[in-house]
Computed example of a mutant assay.
Amino acid sequence: MKIRTITALAAGALLAATTACGAQSLDGGAAAPADGETAAVTLDQAPTEEKAADVINAITPDKDLAAKAPARLKSQGLKVVTSVGYPPMEVYASDGKTAIGFDPALARAIARKLGAKVTIADEEFNSQIPGVLTGRYDFVISSMSDTPERQTQVTFVDYVQAGAGMLIKKGNPAKISGPADLCGKTVSVVDNGSSMELAEKYDADCKKDGKPAVNVLKFPGDQEALIQVTGGRAQATITDYVVAASKAADPKLEVEALSLDGTESPWGIGMKPDDKQLIDSVKGALDSLIASGEYANLLKAWNLDKLAVQSAVINGGK
């Protein structure tokens, strides 16, 4: 579910951008293929702090999928973009530059299925779809909701089903148990994300019922929105439930997580719509990971079992 913003960026500004921070690659060597067959590939090990490292390292290339993958993956590797700082989906290892978390783990797993090296770049959320459309990246995997609006820009292969949640102060001094309790309260959200859309919907519902409006505070990222709650300026912040649960597990933050029922939607891996060979390859790799049980083990490593999908669906967001 998107809780971060997406805006159109000027192509010139994007192309002038420097290489993103936090890039991490899994480089492997490959011998020249014989008799038209796909070459064997030796891939680097997953980062040691990656919770799903053992699962990733055990994944071997699928010969048929690797043969059908775009030829550029063999020479250039799979170029992936995400936005680090969204636990447990995307976080930095202790070195401050290696991306780990479920999204990087799945990207590495897909690359291994396709017999390709992978580079995972960390970019601001707004830059990700433009980066894919200009060819800088092959796909984005960044806790991004598959929505009809985004489907006009990219084609998604949906990889989890997730819902929204709220973070409130520990002990719930504002006595918030659901959206109806937000009337007359201050709520912090990420600007132009689905959390903002939810907040605006709850505000409209309050007004419709003749209750005080919701005061919605908008910020560039989740951390800024969370600070409004811990600092007392807002009584709640809306985000993805998996992120809310992760934050609530940190005793230093002194916050509690609440789920928002009925908000579940698919998150997708976004690619250029005309990059059909890659779309088919990513879908095939995800289906293979699901069938083998490796996908379930990746989720389990990050305690995200409830997000599982049964098959890879293209543009399943409605």
Rank of each mutant, 00 (worst) to 15 (best):
G184I: 14
V132P: 00
N57T: 09
D222K: 14
V282A: 01
Y295N: 01
T60L: 11
D191R: 12
P148I: 08
D35M: 15
D209W: 11
D209H: 11
K51P: 00
K300M: 04
N126R: 11
A52M: 06
A244E: 02
A244Q: 03
S127W: 14
Y202A: 05
E294G: 07
L26W: 12
A204S: 13
D44H: 07
L278F: 02
P130R: 07
P61W: 03
F139T: 09
T82E: 00
E49W: 07
T119G: 01
F219H: 15
G135E: 10
G231P: 05
S145M: 11
K207M: 09
V255R: 02
G131F: 02
K218S: 03
S292K: 09
T237I: 05
S94E: 12
L253Y: 02
Q24N: 09
D181E: 11
P179Q: 05
P220S: 03
D275P: 05
V91C: 10
Q151L: 10
S75G: 15
W302L: 06
G36D: 12
S188N: 10
L278E: 00
Q153N: 11
A105F: 05
I56T: 01
G268C: 04
V214R: 03
A99P: 10
I290Y: 03
P148E: 08
V84H: 01
K208P: 08
P212L: 04
E37K: 12
A116D: 03
P266E: 05
L15S: 12
E124T: 12
D250N: 14
S188Y: 03
S194P: 06
K208Q: 14
A53N: 08
P179Y: 03
S259C: 03
K306M: 11
A249H: 13
A23T: 15
P220V: 00
